[in-house]
Each structure stands twice: as structure tokens, then as C-alpha cells.
Computed example of a mutant assay.
Amino acid sequence: MEHGPGKVLSLKGLTKWYGEKLVLDNIDLDVYEGQIIGYIGPNGAGKSTTVKIMLGLEATYAGEVEIFGENIKKNSVDYKKRIGYVPESADLYDNLSAQEYLTFTGELYGLDADTAEYKARLLMRVFELEEVYESRISSYSKGMKQKVLLISSLLHDPDILFLDEPINGLDANSVMVFKEILAQLAAQGKTIFYSSHIMEVVQKISSRILLLNDGKIVADGSFEQLRQKNKEGSLEEIFNQLTGFNEHQTLAEDFVQIVQREDV
């Protein structure tokens, strides 16, 4: 596989236990500038645990994590200013306006208040939300809240972006804009971890796909490489093959039959 000029992230022997359960099993991984990584796997495979460790939200683990060439246990704060994060479900401060929330977030990442406020207003305008910029977030729709989350993760121009189901609630046009934003950021050398259960999107946007199953990386490569190796047509089919899930048709038939029963 061809790599960009610089390694931005390295996991060496990353292992994590929760009590008796082995969640991450001796993972080795190198990630390079400009890669859009589709980070996929069944629920409970260890995806969010890996991300929490890389973000410094989970401190107890075995192995080494280096980001920007530094062991994150030795450099616990500085590297975080170069990271953006959109969690799958985030609690926004509903009583704040987007103006207040985004300015506050920008300051946390090291921007001065005026710069954060100015950039946030312009980004809200791009997403056609300038009219509600000073309204309380509690009045926003789900899609509007998601746009504010996306802006908050990118406001400080991070070098690595972690996205968990980032297009939840977005309309079709906004999804197209967002996918183009990711492509342009990657072209500038930014690194993006994109975690989603929507396989079609992951298949289309990723330059590299990592499939985690039972705490191990069971596939690593471009979609074309995975398709050639696994002799399957779509990422969803590759996913099902490698995770051993082949009951979807039977489960769907059972569901539909129950829905259509009249003899209850």
C-alpha cells in the first residue's frame, strides 16, 4: 500500500481488558497523512474503545500509542489540540446558542474568542445556519445539531479527525457537501477516521478500510484490495463474510412473517 509522506499515528501491541473481557487483542497499526480510514466492525468489536484510547479518554491499557511521534502517556494534553472528534451521540449544551457553544469549544482548543466566533459564524453560513447562530441549540432539529457538532470538531483546523456516524440526521445535500469537505481535507494531508455502520458511505469515501472483529484487525486495505482478496462484491458482503454474520435473510423473513400474521 502506498503511504503519504508522514506517519501520524502508531499503535504497538495495543491491548485492553474490561474485567475478564479482552476488548483489544494486541493491535499493531500505522496510519499516515492524507488517509481516510473507514473504521468498521460489529458492535462490541472494540472500535470506540480504540478511539477513546487515542483521544486520551481511556488511560488504562497495555502497549504503546504514538500520535505525531509522541507517546500520548508522556504528552497528555498538547496533541489533543490537533485532534477533532464527533462522537456518535453527543450532549450539546442546549441552553447555549451555537455562537456561545462554538466560541467556547474553539477556546478550549486554543483559539482566541474573537477568532473562534468569527470562524464559527462563517462556517454556520456555509451550512445555511447563520440565521439561527444566536438561537439556543435546544430549538434546533437533529440535523442542525449535527452540523454544529461537525463545525465544533473542525473549527481549530485539526490534523486528525475522528468521526463516529457523522452524517446522522443530515439531509442529502449536506451529506454531499460533507463528503467533499473530507476529500479536500485528506488532499491537504489531514487524516480521518470514519466509523459508521452505513457500509455504502464507508466504501465510497475511504482510501483504506480497517475491519475490527473480536478485538483484532481482520481486514486492512483499500476497498478494491479487500474485494479481490475476499471475492465479494460490496463492503457489506465482505463485512458479513469476515464477521461470520449470515443470518440477515432468515431474521428478516422471521420478522416479516410475524408482522403479517393474522392468527394471533
Rank of each mutant, 00 (worst) to 15 (best):
I205S: 02
K204Y: 04
G13V: 09
A172M: 10
G46P: 06
Q184K: 07
Q257Y: 04
G244S: 02
D159V: 05
D254V: 13
L161N: 01
A98W: 01
K142Q: 11
S138F: 09
I181W: 03
D28K: 07
D28N: 15
S135D: 13
Q99D: 04
T49W: 03
E224F: 06
K12M: 05
A172W: 02
L182A: 01
S141Q: 14
T105M: 14
S207H: 00
M124I: 09
A219S: 10
L149K: 14
E2A: 01
D254I: 15
N213M: 07
F223D: 12
N26W: 00
S141V: 15
E58D: 13
A113H: 08
M199N: 11
Q228S: 05
Q146T: 11
D263F: 08
F223G: 07
F239V: 15
V201Y: 03
A186Y: 01
P158V: 09
E131L: 06
G4E: 02
E224V: 07
A45L: 04
L29E: 06
N26M: 03
G44Y: 12
A59E: 14
S76I: 12
Y140L: 08
S76L: 09
H197G: 10
R136S: 13
L96P: 02
K119D: 10
I160S: 02
Y39E: 09
E66F: 09
N26R: 05
Y18A: 10
L149V: 04
L57I: 14
E134F: 02
S48A: 05
S207Y: 00
V126C: 07
H197Y: 13
K145E: 13
L235D: 04
H248E: 15
V126H: 10
M144R: 08
T15R: 08
P87H: 14
M144I: 10
S97Q: 08
D214S: 11
K145S: 12
E247F: 05
G106E: 04
I151N: 11
E117V: 01
V77I: 14
L111F: 07
D114A: 15
G19K: 02
Y118K: 14
M199A: 11
A219V: 11
L226V: 05
D220N: 12
I53F: 09
I72V: 13
D171I: 09
Y118R: 14
V175K: 09
Y85V: 12
T49D: 03
G143C: 12
